[in-house]
Design a protein around this nucleic acid. Sequence first.
DNA 1: AGCACGATTAACT
DNA 2: GTTAATCGTGCTC
Length: 199
Amino acid sequence: MMSKCLLEREFFTRNTLQVAREILGAQLVRVVDGERLSGIIIEVEAYQGEQDLGCHASAGLTPRTQVMYGPSGYAYVYFTYGMHWMLNFVTEGEGVPAAILIRSLVPVEGLGYIAMQRVGRPRAEWTNGPAKLCKAFNITGAENGMDICRLGGPIWVERNHTIPDSSVTNSPRVGLNKVPEPWKSIPWRFRVSNEFFLD
DNA sequence: AGCACGATTAACT
DNA sequence: GTTAATCGTGCTC
């Protein structure tokens, strides 16, 4: 098997839309309790800058958003709805608050651990949502600010599939119902077509 | 100190 | 299709 290649900081220190598009098909790796969990990233969203009114950084530099203002390749993990954690990777250069939200994975390794975290739910719903995958991979505020460009850290990303443009769809970001246009409808959600994995 | 709301999910009718 | 759950965050008083 071809050796896996860690996504380096240079990968993340680029335009957020480019990072979002190109991370599709990569493999998110999580080591927890000495066990290796992983999944293929099949859906992400881009959040870029203070002017993006869908982005938390539209509130400026605050305790919550400070990780997004730092260098790329770090985890921005936040808590919402009183119960859910969300995983993002910081993009762009230092001082530019931007990130990609990881929204959906296809589980690959650690299926037993994941099944325990998602007990009672069908396999198809283990990691098909941003809060679901955090629960499945036991990702919480403890991972906020962690370096994801380091093998042996709590989370990193490896190159895997290359997804052709014909298998990628764009659409508006989810859950921004109260955000004004054009931010509400701008197509900054990137998803791998279901057909890609039927090969 | 109080308020409104959230980059969601699961369980309802 | 609708809605409860549940609390951190940022804003206003």
